Structures are given as structure tokens and as C-alpha cells.
Lab assay of single mutants.
Amino acid sequence: MAAGGDHGSPDSYRSPLASRYASPEMCFVFSDRYKFRTWRQLWLWLAEAEQTLGLPITDEQIQEMKSNLENIDFKMAAEEEKRLRHDVMAHVHTFGHCCPKAAGIIHLGATSCYVGDNTDLIILRNALDLLLPKLARVISRLADFAKERASLPTLGFTHFQPAQLTTVGKRCCLWIQDLCMDLQNLKRVRDDLRFRGVKGTTGTQASFLQLFEGDDHKVEQLDKMVTEKAGFKRAFIITGQTYTRKVDIEVLSVLASLGASVHKICTDIRLLANLKEMEEPFEKQQIGSSAMPYKRNPMRSERCCSLARHLMTLVMDPLQTASVQWFERTLDDSANRRICLAEAFLTADTILNTLQNISEGLVVYPKVIERRIRQELPFMATENIIMAMVKAGGSRQDCHEKIRVLSQQAASVVKQEGGDNDLIERIQVDAYFSPIHSQLDHLLDPSSFTGRASQQVQRFLEEEVYPLLKPYESVMKVKAELCL
């Protein structure tokens, strides 16, 4: 049975990233139509530049190519590739079939990587351009969430054990800070992308030097003109047959890092959902379990974690691919890159769409948070109580021993009897502590235990987050809708 299948058929496997999760716009960027249309555009740009620099290419040939950029006979191309065992030459023939007058000058002087690699770089750039505003929107939604809850005390956790208090907004800023680093890295790697350009079979530009009869300047002009037509500021000066596969490492490393950030955020949300302090959106008709109707599973956060793990592992592909590119190139890269580049971007696209949807509907339960604080705060307040007693004339050592005994009794009630923490009640009825009984409410005010959390939130948002989001103001209103 021949390899390949009808990918629109229910009898043929289709990647869930495309069929179930990723956005239509990201799927289109990695589609065959987008790819092969870009090949034709690159052939047109090459012909236009070659004509401008004096090669015998007519206006009629150029116009014929322009008129057929979208006229792609995919069936013919597939048949040609089956016959020739070469995808680029299959599309040269297919393009030439609908451009008979231009057929002889299509791909003039070029090698397969002229269309293959340059198209990949265009796709990487455009895919990054799709991700950047999506990530900015996630940051914006979380920034709104953090600002609104900047002063809401909550129990902090280290080692997932109760620690000092923080605020809900401050905790959210930990998430935002990681995503801001990801946004900066995505922008950097996007701006650092260079075009492969017009380089020939081993990167020496020998074929173009021959076409222009040894004119170095025209060869350099050709490279520059096509690079500018493709919208790049610069091209690699040095290439082998391909652009260095280190570029793929750079791009997928940034995406993998984004995956790590999203995994951490969504894990926190899942843990908070278990504590009943916070939940992701839950639709009115949504079913959490087929057997347990009360369940409210954090399905979206779980999906993000599941896909983020996949995204983090994909960076190993370009690392290994770059390491086995012998001399000017081997074909070890080809099949692998067809999979890992598309999957990385479709996965990143999915987790950003999902995280935006989550961040637009996060639900906080202040009463649950308050109750958990009441359970733990008495123990945390013991040092403040000791200091207040010393100020009232008591002995630190005597007070410490009193607190120690009462704390152990209260802990026994919590752990052995399943009761509430009654340390404060014990202190309130103990005559030894009568000098500070009137101060206990103040000493137990949760806001006095959150330090500068709310001020940190305000400063972080104003100095770091809002300036970073400013270039994306025009796209901030787009909502994230999930079908599944």
C-alpha cells in the first residue's frame, strides 16, 4: 500500500493539533497551500530580480507567473513527485505547466533550498508574528487579574506546605514575570531571523556568478533584492546548502521555554482548584465526569500541561538535527523538520489560546482563602504575639514557653481530632496574655502579614508589564474561544 493518505478522510490519521486544537490561522501558515504558494512567490521574486539585473526574462513571463501564483494543481504535483521522487522539481514542473512561456526560467540558477529553506524562514517569521500578540493578550488578562487582587491576602506555599502570606495578585505576578520573559525572547528570536537568500547549491553562489558572467556586484544585488522582497532586513552571508540548523534550535528553545512557563502556571491553577481557592472557567453544560456528576475538573489547565510537556520535548529534535548536518548538509534534517517545526508552533498556539481562555474567566473564592488563612495564621502570628507581650512588660522566655504549650495543644486538636485551630481562643482565655487581649485582632490582621506584596504588584505592572504590552494595544480586544 502506498504511503500517505487522504487526510480529510475519517479513515486516515490526522494530527489532533490540526484537527482538534490549533487555530485556523496557525494551521494555514503550515498548510501545503501556504507552503507551495510561497515557493511560487519566491520563484517570481527571483525572476523579477534577475530581470532587473539584466537576464533575458520578459515582462510577459513575469506576468504569467504572477497570474498563476494561486493556480496550484495539487493532484498534478503529487503525481509528479511520485514520478520524480523530488518535491521541488515536482512543483517546478507543475508551475511550468500553467506558465508555459515562463517554464524555462522558473528556478533559474537556484537549488531546492532556495524555495525550501527560504519558505521555512518566512513561515517561522509569520508563525512567530501570530504567537506574539496571543502571548501579549494572556499577559494582559493576567495583569488585569493581578491588579484587581493585588491586596487580597492568601496563604503562600513553599514545598506545598503553608508559608508566609502573600497576595493573590502577587502570586499571579510570578506567572506574568515568566511570560514577559517569554514574550521578550519570542520577539528577540523573531527579529534575529535572517533570510537564507540566493546562495546556490553549497552556499557559494557559483551558479549565479556564472549567470551574471562573473559580476560579483550583481550577485550581491540579486541576494539583497530577493531578501528585501521577502520582507527581511538581512540575509546570511555564510550558508551551506541550507541555512544553519542552529536557527531551528533557537526558535524551538524559546517555544519550549514558553511551554515550561505555561505548565507551571496551569499546575498552580490545578492545585488551587483542589484547594477550592480558584477555578478555571466551567461552562453551564460542561460535564466533569461521566460517573461523578459533582466533579469540576480543571480540564483546560490539564490540557495545557499535557501539550506543554510535548512542546518542551520537541527542542531535542533540532538539537540532534543540527549535530548531524555533515559538511554542507545531509538530508537527516528533512523529514524531522517537516514534523517538529509545525508541531512546535501548533502546540504553542494551542496552549496560548487555551491559557487566554482560562485567564479571561478565572474565578476566585475569597471566603475559602480566608478560612485557610484562619487555619494557619495563628501559628504564624506567634512571633508577633511574643513581641507584643514583651512590649507590655512580659518575659520573652516565659511567653515563648506559654505559646509553645498552647500551640501544641491547638495542633493536637487540628491533627488528632480534625478540629479547627483554636490557638487564639486559648490565648484569649489565658490570664497571662490579658495585657494584649485587646491587640489580638490587630495582630491577626492578614494584611499585616503580606509585606509589600501589593506595592510590588503595582510597581511591576507599571514599570515592566504595561510598557512591554504597549506595541500590542491594537490587538488586545480579541477574545479566545474554545470549541473543545
Rank of each mutant, 00 (worst) to 15 (best):
D191Q: 15
K199W: 00
D445N: 13
V364G: 03
A335I: 01
A335N: 02
G109N: 00
S23R: 13
S289F: 02
Y466D: 13
L461E: 06
R190P: 02
A322E: 11
I106S: 05
R426A: 08
A453N: 15
L252N: 11
Q375K: 08
A388C: 06
L258T: 09
M299N: 10
A90E: 03
G361N: 09
F236D: 04
H310L: 11
T167Y: 00
F157G: 04
T166A: 04
L352C: 09
L53K: 00
F460P: 02
D398H: 10
A110G: 14
P281A: 15
T227G: 09
M389T: 04
E280Q: 06
S31L: 04
A206W: 04
E302K: 00
K470D: 11
I351Q: 02
V475N: 12
T158F: 03
V363R: 05
N297V: 00
G169Q: 02
S257F: 06
G54A: 10
L423H: 09
K66F: 12
L307S: 05
D59L: 06
S301G: 15
S412N: 15
E401A: 14
D268R: 00
K415N: 07
Q285P: 08
V254I: 11
C173H: 09
I269K: 00
K264M: 03
T242D: 08
Q458G: 13
I176Y: 02
N384R: 11
S447T: 11
L55Q: 08
W45S: 13
D349E: 08
R33F: 02
R125I: 09
P56I: 07
V315S: 09
R40K: 05
A78L: 14
H310S: 08
H217N: 10
G54V: 02
Y21A: 05
G116L: 11
S9C: 12
E25P: 07
R404W: 08
M380D: 00
E473S: 15
R125Y: 03
V390T: 04
H442F: 15
C98E: 08
Q286C: 02
V390D: 04
L17W: 14
F74I: 14
S15F: 13
R83G: 12
F232I: 11
K224Y: 15
Q320H: 07
K477S: 14
K82Y: 08
R452F: 12
K187M: 07
K295T: 00
W43T: 01
L46E: 05
F433T: 07
V92Q: 02
L209C: 06
R188A: 09
L468E: 13
R374T: 08
E70A: 06
D223E: 13
R83F: 09
A22T: 10
T227M: 06
H310E: 00
E370L: 05
E148C: 08
N68Q: 11
Y432K: 11
H442M: 15
E473C: 15
A163L: 12
E370A: 02
Q416W: 12
R303D: 02
C27K: 10
Q61L: 03
I424Q: 13
L461A: 02
I436Q: 05
N185T: 13
C340D: 00
G259F: 00
D11M: 09
Y21C: 04
L17R: 02
H217D: 09
Y34S: 11
D117G: 06
F195E: 05
D191E: 13
L341Q: 04
M316W: 11
G169R: 02
L42F: 02
C266S: 08
N297S: 01
H159M: 01
D349W: 02
G96S: 13
E70C: 00
